[in-house]
Design a protein around this nucleic acid. Structure first.
Lengths: 144, 144
DNA sequence: CCTTGTTAGTTACAAAATCAACCATATTGT
DNA sequence: ACAATATGGTTGATTTTGTAACTAACAAGG
């Protein structure tokens, strides 16, 4: 009987993606976790608010591809830390506008810089072409 | 006030990695979850045993970069499903050699084929060069 | 109005991951 | 030999996530 397949799972892209994702996420964690006591979802929500300005929880769900329960809890946690504020002065009383407080904006500025540096270090060993292809492939795979 | 930086989260590699990883992992889940009732960690452990042959839990921890508690629980679950067997005939009575049963090897063969097809479809839209660069970059980032 | 359906967001409960403590065995230094 | 320490692995408590059901507000059709 011949070998049906000599496919090596080291080539399994989801596996590589998972390893790479875990490696980088764990490494970057210390910037928001140890310093600010934030969870990953909180950092993501903070980032979206800092990056795209005041918006609804719904918008964050869509953009960040996070489930509404995750966002709901992260918003609660960020509110407790006084990093964001809600206001529901809209006509639609179901929704509430989320925006960072001054403290939240400071944290965001700090973390954005850390992220930028972290990323630069991460891809430092790659050529410009490799970086471009990497990001392009990842974006396509992620469905962006 | 000037804009300190126009760095965008979309450019943050860990974020892209996370999105891509989640997207593919969720998509592949159905192959081991719905068909065999396995969890992600179980599939990973099975994969490592099938790929690299009989070994200690410790080896799987190192190679798969999984915490020992996760591996311990996954091994227990796989044993219950009769996909693996333990034997502690070693000189060191603390450790036990893990190996797949015939059934476990069949499941592995089946899943490996599914993985191969899944992966082929995933990267189908990329050129050979792009695929090579993608894998190379991911491996480097993952520290392989 | 008043049913029916939809949307924004929260909450309750189950599943899973994380963390710390633990047991048994092995190894090292004195 | 015998503390002290390290290793392989398990277990239990705590956290975090995921799933589903829920409330409240709005929107349309009759």
């Amino acid at each position: 009987m011949t070998n049906i397949s000599d496919y090596d799972l080291e080539d399994f892209t989801p596996y590589l993606l998972n390893l790479a994702s875990e490696t980088t996420s764990l490494a970057f964690q210390r910037h928001y976790r140890t310093t600010y006591g934030m969870l990953r979802t909180e950092w993501r929500v903070l980032f979206h608010l800092g990056q795209y300005g005041p918006q609804l929880a719904r918008d964050i769900c869509d953009r960040a591809r996070l489930h509404k329960t995750k966002v709901s809890r992260a918003v609660g946690a960020l509110e407790e830390k006084r990093y964001l504020r809600r206001s529901e002065d809209t006509k639609d009383r179901r929704q509430e506008l989320l925006e960072l407080t001054t403290m939240g904006r400071n944290v965001f500025a700090e973390l954005r810089q850390a992220a930028q540096k972290f990323d630069a270090d991460l891809v430092a060993e790659f050529t410009l072409e490799e970086r471009a292809i990497l990001k392009q492939c990842l974006a396509r795979i992620a469905g962006l």
